[in-house]
Amino acid sequence: MAQTLPLALLQQAQARGAAIALRYKRLGIWHARTWSELAQEVSRLAAALHQRGFSRHDDLLIISQARSEALLLALAAQWLGGSVTLLDPERDNRALLARLRPSFVLAETLEAVQQVGHADRAPPVLLFLDGRGLNAGDGKGLSAYADLSAGVAAEPPACATDSAAVAFVFHADTHGPSLRLSHAQLLGGARKLVAREQLSGAEEALAARVFAASGQARYLLAPWLCAGFCLNFPEAMATRDTDRRELGPTLVLGTRESYARLELWARERLPLPGTLAHRVYRWAMTPDAQGLRRWLGYWLVRRPLLDVLGMSRLRVPLLVGPALSQESAAFFAALGIHPGAWQEPSARPERAEAHTHLISHSV
């Protein structure tokens, strides 16, 4: 049984190397990577980080939306025994960066790079993903993620095996306490979720939110490595609804707010009250319908609505945090969707309240 997240990746590569592990969308086109390809890429990235001086007990700071590159570099840092701090790119992180003084940073965009640049001390290694407005020669230590592995020929050190080591660090606010999750905590919780929800390698999940959320690590990334299903990355936040409809995921992870957003998005597209079409909608959404009414309601209204939401293949809806509102619960129940609540204790129970907003919004 794997002791760390990178070891779980290697285990999946050995067991089902040719299976699709990850998809990401660029310029409207989906690209697929197998478990073997991911393991090889993470190994190369680990070697590249090691060559740049990253070692055990170092921390890699990432400021990015959900991007496959950010995930792979995080696993590479953990391969070397280091931890990964995740910050929300939509937040002003300058004060926190000044306090943390990171040495290794991955920043997605120009704005994130500028936030890092405002710190008192520029990190020796600053990588960027989106080069628009940037030039690798603009600052000392600044280089493109795509160039990280260039010229690296040596193999990385053996993959770290300390299950008690910190895997991810989250910050609720600038001056508040941090939440640290170890490999053991993440994998232990993931195995419980996999068993309870009967997750398998056949699942399709969508990673549609920033990584700077403890729920994303607990209930999506770690289960992905344990169950071996496919993790899909939308092209951008603005395209996540379209991308979800294209994919038809079998597993979604969300909060009360993200499910409510989907409900509102669907209701805004319903027929106007008083029309025949709206009366048909209300007739079809009766929760206790039986027989012919249930069958007709499904094919006339509920199935098309599920297709619009990208949930026609949904098997495992997960809910993290507070329960759905009564209205939202009734709406999704009428569609046959009953989100399963999953709440794992915080790494620091006495400080859990300070981290309630660090839960992911993936739907």
Rank of each mutant, 00 (worst) to 15 (best):
Trp35Met: 00
Ala21Lys: 01
Gly53Asp: 09
Leu27Asp: 15
Trp35Ser: 01
Arg44Pro: 03
Lys25Val: 11
Phe54Trp: 08
Ala46Phe: 05
His57Tyr: 10
Glu69His: 06
Ser43Gly: 10
Leu38Glu: 15
Leu60Ser: 04
Asp59Tyr: 02
Ser64Pro: 06
Leu45Val: 08
Arg44Ile: 04
Arg23Ala: 12
Ala21Arg: 00
Gln65Val: 07
Gln65Gly: 08
Gln65Ile: 01
Ser64Phe: 03
Glu37Tyr: 02
Ile29Glu: 11
Ala39Lys: 01
Trp35Cys: 00
Leu45Pro: 08
Ala32Pro: 02
Val42Ser: 02
Gln65Ser: 10
Glu69Ala: 12
Val42Phe: 10
Leu61Gln: 02
Gly53Phe: 05
Ser55Val: 10
Ile63Arg: 01
Phe54Thr: 02
Leu27Ser: 11
Val42Arg: 01
Ser68Met: 08
Leu27Asn: 12
Ser43His: 09
Ser36Ala: 12
Arg56Asn: 09
Ala66Leu: 05
Ala66Lys: 05
Leu61Tyr: 03
Trp30Pro: 00
Ala32Glu: 15
Arg23His: 10
Val42Gln: 05
Arg33Met: 11
Tyr24Asp: 10
Ser64Asp: 11
Asp59Ala: 13
His57Met: 15
Arg33Phe: 04
Thr34Asp: 05
Glu41His: 14
Thr34Val: 07
Ala66Tyr: 00
Ile63Leu: 15
Ala47Ile: 06
Gln65Tyr: 07
Leu49Gly: 02
Gln51Glu: 13
Ile20Asp: 08
Arg26Lys: 11
Glu41Ile: 09
Ala70Asp: 04
Ala70Thr: 00
Val42Leu: 09
Thr34Phe: 00
Ala47Ser: 11
Ala46Pro: 06
Gly53Lys: 11
His31Trp: 05
Ser55Trp: 05
Ala46Thr: 10
Thr34Arg: 07
Ala70Arg: 00
Gly53Leu: 14
Gln65Thr: 09
Asp58Gly: 09
Gln51Met: 12
Glu37Met: 10
Arg23Gln: 15
Ile62His: 02
His57Gln: 15
Asp58Met: 05
Ser64Glu: 05
Leu61Glu: 01
Thr34Ile: 07
Ala32Gly: 09
Lys25Ile: 12
Arg52Val: 03
Ser55Gln: 13
Lys25Leu: 11
